[in-house]
């Protein structure tokens, strides 16, 4: 099988394959980390760098990152760009439509803290004011490589998840931040 699991132990060879043992956590986390499906959802400038990451040179798909046009099929939301106050409610709505476990990468300065629009009357100063964020990615805009690094960081986080923790949420997530909305 070409699966590499951290704590997989092969116990017996059988014709046509073998019998292996693994914990359900590592199996589920392996599946989860290698198919991080983001939502095709761009807000502003960073969305263009996100598109570049999907395109020829960077080829995000080799990391299992394959854009889905609907929130119902997406695992992770890249908040790529400035969150305006008018857009805040749709973002919350889209976030609620995503199935658990769901993750958010705040891409770029605007999604982190407002960026160059920190003193604007129409901008939400950071998407973490409306939805919980898993990975903050600085830059204005971050390069596609940086987005890849953010996904790698997210995968690291995913590997630490356990089945016991509710719907796969980390203890911190299960405890609180999701109730904010």
């Amino acid at each position: 099988m070409g699966i590499v699991l951290d704590n997989l132990s092969k116990i017996e060879s059988l014709p046509g394959g073998g019998l292996a043992l693994a914990t359900s956590d590592s199996l589920i986390n392996w599946a989860r980390t290698s198919s991080v499906w983001p939502l095709t959802f761009g807000l502003a400038c960073c969305a263009i760098e996100m598109m570049a990451a999907y395109a020829s040179r960077f080829d995000f798909e080799r990391m299992g990152v394959f854009p889905r046009p609907t929130p119902r099929q997406a695992d992770v939301m890249f908040v790529a760009g400035t969150v305006s106050k008018k857009m805040a409610d749709p973002i919350i709505r889209i976030y609620k439509q995503m199935p658990e476990p769901k993750f958010v990468i705040a891409m770029g300065g605007c999604a982190n803290c407002g960026g160059p629009f920190y003193d604007s009357y129409a901008v939400v100063k950071g998407v973490d004011r409306i939805i919980p964020v898993d990975v903050y990615l600085p830059g204005c805009p971050p390069r596609p490589e940086a987005l890849m690094y953010a996904v790698i960081k997210l995968q690291e986080k995913m590997r630490k998840m356990t089945v016991k923790g509710g719907l796969g949420a980390t203890p911190l997530q299960a405890a609180g931040s999701r109730k904010l909305i």
Binding site: K85, K86, A88, Y121, A122, V124, K125, R129, I130
Partner: peptide, 24 residues
């Protein structure tokens, strides 16, 4: 057209004062 319907006041007037809303 650009701002929300809940926007108070007219932003580009020089005497515009921003009232904090739920996002600030």
């Amino acid at each position: 057209i650009l701002t929300m319907e809940t926007q108070q006041g007219y932003p580009l007037r020089k005497d515009y004062e921003h009232l904090p809303d739920k996002f600030d």
